[in-house]
Simulated assay, not measured.
Amino acid sequence: MGHNIDELVTLFEASPVAVLTGAGISTDSGIPDYRGEGSPPRTPMSISQFTDDPQYRRRFWAGARVGSSRFSAIQPNAGHIALAHLEAAGRINGVITQNVDGLHRRAGSRTVVELHGSGSTIRCVNCDFRTTRNEVLGWFDALNPGYAERHAGAEIAPDGDAAVAETDAVEVPTCPMCGGMLRPDVVYFGETVPPKVFAAAEVLLNEAGALILAGTSLAVNTGVRLVHRAERRGIPVAVINRGPTAVDARADVRLEGGTTEILTELAARLR
């Protein structure tokens, strides 16, 4: 690993580096990866499922509530913290992430572009009222007294929600302003990244001397678009990941391994 870490360190000589992170950076915090080695293949939720199927919404909110107690215990890991330190030291100009878990901000990163939104924010599809996930889960408890306690043993899925079986009688919380449908403020399959969010990611990339991809297989098109942008600018692209990625053949530097260990060593070398 040392030899490749040297190559990675040289990318920081000219100017700050932009970093794009995916699910692999959060696995060491206890959030399973959709596509990593050893994880069962799962299809992430599509927005049409959520909006069109009341049963799906019941399952979603029930799973979100039952999973929340364990999810709230999840903490940023050393990889998240290493990136926060690199930003504080002026070595990276921020983090662009495909994750919706909020762990980069909690680790102390200041400039974070959340391409796929934030799972902790809930909004109304009608009037755009916004509130926190925790507040809506409180409303769930008021509508479904005792439900969370009865299903406390359910297995946790990659998105942090529990796989609960009995949801037919679940009452789904609605918008307190207009009675409309509430949904997480995240980009689901079938939706696109908001243009101003992608523009914020491009700003970081345009000011960077290199792009590092950490813990992403680049199965999502937005990440690939950013790699194309980096290539057009002629800046080097580095990949840190366990398992293959969509851009391995084109990467200037490729490190096979866990983001926690590699980013921690990188931060130590650049201190």
Rank of each mutant, 00 (worst) to 15 (best):
Leu86Gln: 03
Thr260Phe: 06
His80Gly: 10
Ser46Ile: 15
Ala62Leu: 00
Val9Trp: 00
Ala14Cys: 07
Leu143Ser: 03
Val66His: 07
Val112Trp: 12
Leu83Trp: 00
Gly190Ile: 02
Thr192Gln: 13
Thr10Cys: 11
Met45Phe: 12
Ile235Met: 04
Val227Ile: 07
Ala148Asp: 01
Pro244Cys: 08
Asp248Trp: 07
Asp33Phe: 11
Arg58Trp: 04
Met177Asp: 15
Gly22Pro: 05
Thr264Leu: 11
Ala142Met: 12
Val220Arg: 06
Gly215Val: 00
Ala152Met: 14
Val17Phe: 05
Ser72Thr: 13
Arg65Cys: 13
Leu263Phe: 05
Ala268Cys: 13
Val186Asn: 00
Pro244Tyr: 14
Leu218Gln: 08
Ala78Leu: 13
Leu137Ala: 03
Ser29Ala: 11
Ala84Val: 02
Thr192Cys: 13
Arg35Pro: 00
Ala201Cys: 05
Met177Asn: 15
Thr111Cys: 12
Asn221Gly: 09
Gly108Leu: 05
Arg133Ser: 06
Tyr147Ile: 00
Leu218Arg: 07
Gly234Thr: 08
Glu149Val: 07
Ala268Thr: 07
Val66Glu: 10
Val172Thr: 05
Val224Phe: 15
Glu261Trp: 12
Pro236Gly: 06
Tyr147Phe: 00
Ser48Phe: 11
Asp53Lys: 04
Asp141Met: 07
Gly94Cys: 07
Tyr188Glu: 13
Gly160Gln: 13
Val239Arg: 04
Ala267Arg: 01
Glu13Tyr: 04
Thr167His: 04
His85Tyr: 09
Ala199Tyr: 02
Pro195Trp: 06
Asn126Asp: 14
Gln49Asp: 14
Arg42Glu: 12
Ser46Gly: 11
Glu37Pro: 15
Ala246Val: 14
Trp139Tyr: 14
Cys175Glu: 05
